[in-house]
Amino acid sequence: MSEKTFVDLESEIEGTVTRESICLEENLIYQKPIDTLIDTPMHYCPGCGHSTAHKIFMEVVAEMGLQEEIIGVAPVGCSVFAYHYMNVDMQEAAHGRACAVGTAIKRVMPEKYVFTYQGDGDLAAIGTAETVHAANRGENILVIFINNGIYGMTSGQMAPTSLAGMVTTTSPYGRDTSRQGYPLKISEMLAPLPGVAYVTRQSVHKPNNVKRAKKALQKALQYQKEKRGFCMVEIVSNCPSNMKMTPLQSNQFVEEKMIPFYPLGDIKTPEDK
């Protein structure tokens, strides 16, 4: 963590940004998609990356004209209510089983687009088997993987992706890798599988990253259209409430601690396949 406090950072931002400058066309990061995002307050904590990820993905769905062509699968985790926000047909899966549910939806309706939206506990702990096998079969689906390094919904327990030494409610003295295992790099693990077409790691903690993450989601749906195979967009994210940080501090944690261990960028593209 840097020495700067939240107040320091806030005043720094205030010095450079005005309401007018935010509204300039070139400064717009994303807009609220009118058709694909339901007009209702989200239950996410202030500053949580889930809401940004929802918005940019629904923007992509709107821009690509897929609202009527796509079926989503919500996980068990903080994003369990994704279907209250995403204005597309959706199914809520049991904890960890989104890739199995998504597989079946795609197999019975191959002409439709299918995505799952999962946290790290859902995808990389209880649902590892379903994830690995969907990837290995080359299921032509998109998996959006929100890696915040913690169990958000159940209030801050250790996740398979929690960093070494990270303090959580179930690793109160810091994650001890000799007893609690090492943080799992699922994206790197899946990339070598022949069924996998596209794996990329992105984040939504800064404007430029949001733009890049959106591009990655766009690409992934384009690859699904081209029937390239399994695509996963990992989004390294924050959890202000359970990290016991302000939104800004938590984004700083993403920048300074998470991203060095989970480096951003494409891990596999269809060209590497």
Partner: peptide, 24 residues
């Protein structure tokens, strides 16, 4: 008709959920 070998019974029943949810 699709005949699909799942990776486990856990996956199979959740595939049933997914496909049944599509009205199949």
């Amino acid at each position: 008709m699709l005949a699909f070998q799942a990776e486990s019974e856990v996956a199979a029943i959740n595939m049933i959920y997914g496909a049944a949810g599509c009205g199949r």
